[in-house]
Simulated assay, not measured.
Amino acid sequence: MKSRLIFCLLFAFTLAHTSLYAQEAKPDSYTDLQTGLKFPSTIERLKFVSKADYGDVQLGVGIRYRSPEGLRIDAIIYNLGLKTIAADPADPRVKEQVEEALSGIKLAAEKGLLKDLKVISNEVVPIAKGDAAPKAHKVLLSFTLAEEARESALYLFVYKDHFIKVRATWFPEEKKASREDVAAFLTWLSAEMKK
């Protein structure tokens, strides 16, 4: 299933210390041709790290940012070849993508890649402050990877007939700064989507 492949790609590039991007030139910003979203070199304290093309327009691209404390934010933009995708979080296709992501994470835990996996919350929230902000499924997780505790937030929503999956992973001791950086990224993204 293509959505499982997308999750596996996202999961691998989020957790691995080496990157899928090592094989291609690393730009300092990126404009997505499918959605028109322009990812700048910095978003407040976050620095653009790289962009990965998954080799098929249906599987999309991944964009990575990083904070000084090691927070990683990965945004995946893809459409699975669907011509139209409802932007409603209650739409079955959107819910299916959230469930696919969660089942992939649980599978990684079953295989021993993650330890002590906990799903802390799973809710629909606006991605930024204000009534006009897009609503997303937000899944908050905690787990242990390489003997270190981590926390992660997964956001999934639709923009211009594309799924956008944002995964932020941080160390618990950096929770306050990391959550502020995630909020800054999502606030920027919400504003960019209105242009």
Rank of each mutant, 00 (worst) to 15 (best):
K83H: 09
Y54E: 04
K118Y: 00
A136S: 14
F39I: 03
S142H: 05
E123C: 02
Y30G: 02
H137I: 02
K106E: 15
G62K: 04
A128P: 08
F11N: 13
G104Y: 07
S142L: 03
D74H: 04
L117A: 11
D91H: 15
G104L: 09
L140N: 12
K111L: 10
Y78A: 13
V49I: 10
R72Q: 05
F11C: 14
E24L: 06
V119Y: 02
P68K: 02
K26C: 00
E123Q: 13
F143M: 13
E96N: 09
L140R: 12
L102P: 03
L102K: 14
D74L: 13
V124K: 11
V61C: 09
D116Q: 13
K47H: 10
G130D: 05
G55W: 10
G112T: 03
P89E: 06
D53M: 00
I105M: 14
Y30L: 06
T35Q: 09
G70S: 09
V94G: 05
S142D: 12
K26R: 15
G62A: 14
L141C: 13
E69I: 03
H17L: 10
G62F: 00
K106N: 12
L15K: 01
Q23W: 08
Q97C: 09
L37I: 15
A16T: 02
D131Q: 07
A128V: 11
V139W: 08
R72F: 04
T84R: 08
K111D: 14
A52H: 14
K129M: 05
A133S: 15
K83Y: 06
G36A: 11
D116I: 00
D91W: 09
A136Y: 05
A101C: 13
G70K: 10
I76R: 01
L20R: 10
E123W: 04
I105K: 08
P126Y: 03
D131K: 11
K95W: 03
K106G: 04
A25P: 12
R45D: 13
K26F: 00
L107P: 00
P89W: 10
E123F: 02
L102Q: 12
T84L: 07
L46H: 06
V125D: 03
D91C: 08
N122Y: 04
G60S: 05
L37D: 03
S103N: 15
A108M: 13
R45L: 07
F143Q: 07
K95C: 11
P134E: 04
R45Y: 01
D53G: 04
E96W: 07
E24W: 10
P40N: 00
S121A: 14
R93S: 07
E99K: 12
I76W: 09
K26D: 02
L141W: 09
Q23P: 00
V61M: 02
R66T: 07
V49A: 11
D28W: 04
